[in-house]
Deep mutational scan, measured.
Amino acid sequence: LTDEELVTMSVRELNQHLRGLSKEEIIQLKQRRRTLKNRGY
């Protein structure tokens, strides 16, 4: 997933992508998404 996709994707879509990932990967992705959102994309 690109940063842009992460930010513009709805939470529902995101959760579908996260299905099948490990807990660590999910946590990393969610942190990255929060960081991007805070940057004001």
Rank of each mutant, 00 (worst) to 15 (best):
S22K: 07
L14D: 00
M9N: 02
R12D: 09
R32A: 01
I27K: 13
H17W: 13
I26V: 11
L1C: 06
R33E: 03
L36I: 05
K30Y: 14
E13Y: 03
L29P: 00
L6K: 01
R33H: 12
H17C: 11
L21G: 01
G40C: 15
I27Q: 12
M9H: 03
K23A: 09
I26E: 04
N38D: 11
Q31T: 10
L14I: 05
S22I: 03
N15T: 10
S10G: 06
K23W: 09
L21Y: 07
G40V: 11
T2W: 02
Q16L: 13
R34H: 08
E25R: 07
Y41K: 12
Q31M: 12
V11K: 14
E24I: 11
T8V: 07
L6G: 00
Q28G: 08
S22N: 07
I26P: 00
H17M: 10
E5I: 07
G40A: 11
Q28C: 13
L36T: 02
L18C: 10
E4N: 08
K37E: 05
L14Y: 05
Q16R: 14
L14P: 00
R33W: 15
R32D: 00
K37H: 06
R12A: 12
L18Q: 02
T2I: 02
L29G: 00
L1M: 06
N15Q: 11
E5Q: 15
L21W: 06
G20E: 05
Q31W: 08
N15R: 15
R19Q: 10
Q28N: 10
L14W: 11
Y41C: 12
S22A: 07
L6C: 00
E4D: 10
G40L: 15
G20N: 09
T8Y: 08
K30F: 15
I27L: 11
V7R: 08
G20V: 04
V7D: 04
T2Q: 03
Q16M: 13
K30D: 02
L1H: 02
L29K: 02
T35G: 07
E5V: 07
E24C: 10
R12T: 09
E25F: 06
N38L: 11
E5P: 00
E25T: 09
Q31E: 12
L6T: 00
L18H: 01
K30E: 04
L6I: 05
G40S: 08
N38E: 14
R32E: 00
R34K: 11
T2Y: 02
E5A: 08
K37A: 05
T8I: 07
R12C: 14
N38C: 15
T2H: 03
K30H: 08
R34T: 06
H17R: 14
N38Y: 09
V11D: 13
N38H: 09
E5M: 13
N38F: 07
E24N: 09
I27M: 12
M9F: 03
I27V: 11
R33G: 00
G40M: 14
R34A: 11
K23C: 06
Q16C: 15
D3A: 03
Q28A: 15
T35M: 15
E24R: 11
R33K: 04
S22W: 01
M9G: 01
T8S: 14
T2S: 11
S22Y: 02
L36D: 01
R19A: 09
Q16G: 06
I26K: 14
D3Q: 02
S10I: 02
Q16V: 11
T8H: 14
K23P: 11
D3Y: 03
M9E: 01
L18E: 01
Q28S: 11
E4G: 06
